[in-house]
Every structure is written in C-alpha cells, then in structure tokens.
C-alpha cells in the first residue's frame, strides 16, 4: 500500500477540499518531489510550527512568489547535478496563483522551467475569510462581493487562467476536480513526466467558504463538472486534446446547494442571474463539446 505523504493532524476544516487535493497530488507524484507552497489555507493548515503535514520536502516563502521559488529550486537541482533527485511542484490557491502570483507564474511558464504548477481552485480568499478573487464565479456572494439590496454578488466571470497558461505555448495544461480522484492522480503523473512547464487547475470545493455541509465536498465538486460550470480538459501547446463529457444537469442543482448562491433563489430578479449562469455553462459546453 502506498505511504500517505500528507499526514493527518493538519488543521484543515472537516471536509476540506484543499486537503483532499494535496493528498491526491502526492498520490500522483510519489515521494521524490520538492513542493513549493505560497501563503494560503493549505500552507497554514499544514505547517503550524513545530509540525508539518508534509512528508516530502516542502517550502513556503511568500504569497505571490511560489512560481519564482519553484523556478529557483529547479535551476538549483540542475546546477548541483541533482536533477534526477526530485520533480518540482508548486501547489497554490487561486488567490496566490490567479491574482497576486500571476506575474511570477507567467515568468516561470515563459522561461520554460521544468516545474508543475498546480492551483487548487476554491474560488475565493478562504484563509483571510472568504473574500472575492478573480477566480470567484459570477453570482457568488463573498465577504467583499456580498449580495445586497442592489447587488447579486460577484459581477464578473471567473478569470480563465488555464487559457492564459496555454497561451504561453507550454507543453501541458489541464483542469481536474477532486470529485474525480483517479483523473487528478493520472494528470499529476502525466504532468510531472513531461519536461518543461505544466499548469494544472484542480477544482477544490470549500465547505466553509461556499456554505455547504462538509460531507458534501465531493458531491458539490461533481455537480460543478456535471453542470458544465467547471469543464475538465487537457491541452497541449494550446490545443485541447481531451475533454470530460457529461450528461449535463441544470446549473440550479449546483447553485442551490450552496449558501454563496442562496440569494439568487430568494431575491427579486434572481432568475435573470441564474439564466446568465446557465449561459456561462452553455458556452463552456459549446466551446469544449462537453455534452454526451
């Protein structure tokens, strides 16, 4: 049986999606890795001094520099003749990756470092208290994009970082969801086997931030995929090479199960907003050919 490389005793909430993501990533990577984490929920819950949940070499430096630190680890291994010792993987949240760290990430991708950058996407700044990030989806109520008398919550669509990563012409970009663990493990294995920069975005529902019972983390993740709101695909050098097809469900099934979208079902005019979200899912289905 494979050794558990992300140890229990960490401080993640009961039902933490990010912790599941970390476990699956390490199942895919094995122990010969060096992990770089930016500041964020996963970093905080996994490394309360003098403890660490990581059974693989791990470093946290700052919030926006994980991709640059990972670049440094990679070139150091190369320079010291230790390239075969470990694969380099960065694991950051959506705030650290898609907002504040996008400059460093773009630099890392553009320079061609042999690093796999993995974003666990829980669609807001969870560690600081569920504030809106550029990965927060349309219509979600967060503490800085709250639904109110004249607001339906977040009024911009989710930033498409996989497409931005792919625009760097890198050899491998993929999305995945913790609801499909074998797919996550397979994609991590594949990513680290490819030389050069790789980007993986793993949808990781957050029970605390999104407002659902911790037992439903996987169910919610599955619904995001089944409604077409989080398309799962792979792309190589900018071209989509595989897509997870689904028998699509209406977006309401996903949205109504979460507190962050509750206002859409209760406020006047919410129907129009639900329609806009359905349009986003339909557009994804069309772009990626999601429908079975």
């Amino acid at each position: 049986m494979q050794e558990e490389l992300f140890a229990p005793g960490h401080r993640g909430c009961a039902g933490c999606g990010a912790a599941i993501a970390a476990r699956l990533i390490l199942k895919g990577s094995g122990k010969d890795v060096i992990i770089v984490s930016p500041t964020g929920c996963l970093e905080v819950v996994s490394s309360p001094y003098p403890e660490s949940a990581w059974k693989v070499p791990w470093i946290h430096s700052l919030f926006e520099n994980a991709a640059a630190v990972a670049s440094g680890v990679e070139v150091a291994l190369k320079s010291l003749g230790r390239k075969d010792e470990a694969k380099v993987i960065a694991i950051g949240g959506d705030g650290a990756t898609i907002d504040i760290g996008i400059g460093a990430l773009s630099g890392m991708l553009e320079r061609g470092h042999d690093v796999t950058y993995i974003c666990y996407d829980n669609e807001a700044y969870m560690n600081t208290g569920i504030q809106r990030s550029s990965s927060t989806p349309y219509g979600a109520s967060t503490t800085t994009s709250p639904a109110g008398k004249v607001s339906f919550g977040e009024n911009r669509p989710k930033k498409n970082l996989p497409a931005i990563a792919a625009a760097h012409g890198i050899p491998y970009v993929a999305t995945a969801s913790i609801a499909y663990p074998k797919d996550v493990i397979k994609k991590v294995k594949k990513a680290i086997s490819i030389e050069g920069p790789k980007y993986l975005q793993i949808h990781a529902p957050c029970c605390t931030g999104w407002g659902f019972d911790g037992s439903k983390t996987i169910e919610i993740g599955r619904l995001a995929v089944e409604t077409g709101l989080f398309p799962i695909y792979e792309s190589t050098e900018g071209k989509v090479t595989s897509v997870k097809k689904v028998k699509r469900k209406p977006v309401e099934e996903y949205l109504k199960a979460q507190r962050r979208f509750k206002h859409l079902f209760e406020s006047e005019g919410g129907e129009g907003e639900l329609k806009k979200i359905q349009d986003i899912a339909d557009a994804n289905a069309k772009q990626f050919g999601l429908d079975l």
Partner: peptide, 28 residues
C-alpha cells in the same frame, strides 16, 4: 562561468528565485 542564470520578470522574483535555489543548497 557555469552558473544557471535566470532572467526573471521582476526583482521580487529575482530574490524569490535565490530563496528557492539557496534552500535547495545552491550558492546564489
């Protein structure tokens, strides 16, 4: 000079690359 030379996209990343490399055992 047989060094890895990383042409970073900012000074923030210059020092961050040094941190990653130094923590891996490299002189930076």
């Amino acid at each position: 000079l047989a060094s890895e030379y990383v042409r970073v996209e900012s000074e923030h990343s210059a020092m961050s690359v040094c941190i990653g490399a130094s923590a891996t055992g490299a002189r930076t």
